[in-house]
Amino acid sequence: MSNEIPVTDDLPDSPIHTTGTDHMTIWGSNEEDTVAFYRDLLGMPLVLRQPNLDDPSQTHLFFDTGDGRIITFFVSDDRESNPYGQRGAVGSVHHLCFRIAPDRFEEMIEAIDDDGRSYNIFDRGIFFSLYTHDNNGLVIELSTDKYDIPDDRRGEVLAKVQALREADGSDFAEDKHMKAALEELGMDATAHELPDAPTGTGV
Rank of each mutant, 00 (worst) to 15 (best):
V139E: 13
G125D: 06
R165A: 05
E174W: 10
L42P: 05
L194T: 13
S118P: 07
S2L: 15
P51A: 08
D134A: 06
P15C: 04
N3G: 07
V75I: 10
H23Y: 13
D171M: 08
L53K: 14
A181D: 00
R49K: 15
D78A: 12
I121D: 05
F74L: 12
T199Y: 10
T72Y: 08
I121E: 14
P198R: 07
A159M: 02
D175Y: 04
H60K: 02
V75L: 02
M187H: 03
Y119P: 04
D196S: 06
F105T: 07
D54N: 13
I121T: 14
L164F: 14
N30Q: 13
D148F: 03
R124P: 06
G91M: 11
D33P: 05
F122V: 12
E193M: 01
S118D: 15
S170R: 11
K146W: 00
E4M: 10
F73K: 05
A111R: 09
N135D: 05
T18H: 14
R69Y: 12
N136K: 09
Y119I: 01
D22P: 07
L11C: 06
P102S: 14
D103R: 08
R154F: 10
H133V: 09
R104L: 15
L42H: 11
M1H: 13
T18Q: 06
A197H: 00
D64V: 07
D148Y: 05
L42A: 12
A36S: 15
S129T: 08
